[in-house]
């Protein structure tokens, strides 16, 4: 599904290399986790995959089901099936959460040549999914993420993911700042979407989230590279010993 080969990325504004040859393949139906110290390039990878400005790909490639992602505009990547749950969801005053989501759902459907969702159908579906995530009607009406608590913002990301039904879900530290209950809600939201045809890339610092979202593969990222790949046990090792041992071992 998602294939990243030898990806090198620098900042546009300054001459600084962030990703130094990332190789990663996420198969459909699988959950891959990426762990790694702060500043290792995890968020950068998620941004580059979703098409944020400010980065230059100097080498390598990234494809989704064979399609070159790096050539596409952010909205084209979204229509192709890429979804990023932001580490820091953006507040947008003046744009209603519902308006935003309906515009997004229909824009993607239109881009894929599918029929748009009617207002009534949309309302029915979103109410259902919001309920599962304990998002109340008031939150749906408010401007996007404005005045939301940290946990509410993260749940709102998962709601968007549930509505958009992407093929490749990238979650960037969706667990950070969540209490145990909120984390369970988020994990349930993610697990409900687990499907044969869908891949997940879950970026996290903690084993905790991975107790709820069982990963198939765990990668350790450090200094712009995937330095170690293993099974779920790798996450446990990080939880117990930190990154020091692993980094020393691969250095």
């Amino acid at each position: 599904m998602l294939e990243i080969k030898n990806l090198h990325v620098s900042l546009e504004e300054e001459d600084k290399q962030i990703l130094k040859g990332v190789d990663l393949t996420v198969e459909a139906g699988k959950v891959h986790a990426i762990m790694g110290p702060n500043g290792s390039g995890k968020s950068t990878l998620s941004y580059v995959l979703s098409g944020r400005d400010g980065y230059v790909v100097t080498e390598g490639e990234a494809t989704l089901n064979g399609e070159d992602l790096l050539e596409m505009e952010p909205e084209e990547r979204a229509a192709a099936g890429v979804f990023l749950a932001f580490q820091y969801p953006v507040e947008i005053p003046g744009v209603g959460n519902m308006t935003f989501l309906r515009t997004a759902v229909n824009a993607q459907r239109k881009a894929r040549g599918e029929e748009e969702m009617s207002a009534a159908e949309f309302l029915k579906v979103i109410r259902e999914k919001a309920k599962d995530l304990k998002i109340d009607a008031d939150m749906l009406k408010r401007p996007v993420n404005v005045g939301f608590s940290g946990g509410e913002k993260k749940r709102n990301e998962i709601l968007q993911m549930a509505m958009l039904e992407p093929k490749m879900c990238i979650l960037d530290e969706t667990d950070s700042g969540l209490d145990v209950d909120a984390m369970k809600l988020v994990a349930e939201g993610v697990n409900a979407l687990r499907d044969e045809g869908r891949g997940f890339l879950v970026i996290t610092h903690y084993q905790r989230l991975l107790d709820h979202i069982k990963p198939d593969v765990v990668h350790i990222m450090a200094n712009g590279r995937i330095v170690k790949t293993g099974g779920p046990e790798l996450a446990l090792e990080v939880e117990q010993n930190g990154y020091a041992d692993i980094l020393a071992e691969v250095a």
Partner: peptide, 26 residues
Amino acid sequence: DEEALFYLRSRGVSHGEATDLLVLAF
């Protein structure tokens, strides 16, 4: 707001439509 624009586009809203949403909000 470029951050807001990217956020909207990352959900599939076209550049033009995302700009409109932000203009109307303004």
